[in-house]
């Protein structure tokens, strides 16, 4: 399905580009190389997480950000920011205190990457959604589009960056695990999305009293690279109920579909009306 979408976008790009008069080879490349099932992701197990913040600290150190000083506390919502790519929050739930980690979800079909007009936000074939500084204009449309409000902007800087988790992409291409996974005991588990789903199901089957029988991230926003296991429903853990289960880029599909047809139909129609309303008199008319 994803591949269909990509093919579609590519064909749209080629069509509209050639109409605009730009070489069609400028259309997005990279995207058809690999298929989604090989996307890497991370399984987060909130039934095991003890909220020790070791991953937060490792993340800050690895990305040159200040070490977080506040601790997860019930009733206080900590948010990711331009200085913090991941946070652990604590929630009082029907099953007692549960910790939840928040960071970029690395969607299979990311809204931010579909929104980005320069491909600065980019879904790599390995799975991480990364941000590429040399392409970004700083328009912040990714922030408007992301349903999880993940990308954070350095408003105080004259050369601002977008800060968000990149799943330690540079480590992944070297064959290493993201720093958070390496720091954590069992609450973070790294692997391909298939492996994560298998592992999640294994945990649910082996210790059913610890888990709700559902994996958050399997469907939400069209599927995400981060998967969550928890003893309670996502609502109790601060996840926005309004986030839809289907893909976000699909919401703009029909609009983008209509562009090539508008480009063919409207000028034809206008020229037709112009010719039809032409009279001998208008030959002397002044077009200015």
């Amino acid at each position: 399905m994803t591949i269909d979408r990509r093919k579609f976008f590519k064909s749209i790009a080629i069509t509209s580009m050639s109409i605009i008069g730009v070489r069609a080879s400028g259309a997005p490349k990279a995207e058809t190389d690999e298929h989604d099932s090989e996307f890497y992701g991370i399984l987060y197990d909130s039934s095991i997480c003890i909220g020790c913040q070791a991953c937060e600290k490792a993340c800050a150190k690895a990305h040159g950000l200040p070490e977080p000083t506040d601790k997860p506390e019930k009733g206080i919502l900590r948010k990711t920011s331009e200085n913090q790519r991941c946070v652990i929050n604590s929630y009082e739930t029907s099953q007692g205190e549960v910790y939840v980690r928040n960071q970029c979800m690395h969607c299979d079909e990311p809204a931010c990457a579909a929104a980005c007009l320069t491909q600065a936000m980019y879904k790599t074939k390995e799975g991480p959604v990364i941000w590429r500084e040399n392409k970004c204009m700083g328009c912040r449309y990714c922030m408007i589009s992301c349903p999880f409000d993940v990308p954070k902007f350095e408003y105080g800087s004259t050369n601002p960056k977008i800060q968000k988790c990149d799943m330690c992409y540079d480590r992944i291409i070297e064959g290493k695990k993201p720093v958070c996974v390496e720091t954590c005991g069992d609450a973070l588990f790294f692997g391909t999305r298939q492996e994560l789903l298998t592992e999640a199901r294994r945990r649910i089957t082996e210790i059913p009293e610890l888990y709700l029988d559902s994996i958050y991230g399997k469907e939400v926003a069209g599927g995400t690279g981060y998967l969550y296991l928890a003893p309670v429903t996502p609502d109790e853990l601060g996840f926005d109920k309004r986030i839809q289960d289907s893909s976000y880029p699909a919401l703009t599909k029909s609009f983008l579909y209509s562009v090539p047809s508008v480009f063919i139909l409207v000028p034809t129609l206008l020229l037709g009306i112009h010719e039809a309303t032409k009279s001998k008199k208008t030959k002397d008319e002044n077009y200015d």
Partner: peptide, 25 residues
């Protein structure tokens, strides 16, 4: 309003066409 206005030509020239973006259009 752009954070990096010097990159404003990226969607116009070069190989940075985010053709799936409404904003690109």
């Amino acid at each position: 309003d752009l954070g990096k206005p010097w990159n404003i030509f990226n969607p116009i020239i070069g190989n940075s066409f985010g053709a799936s973006s409404v904003l690109f259009l």
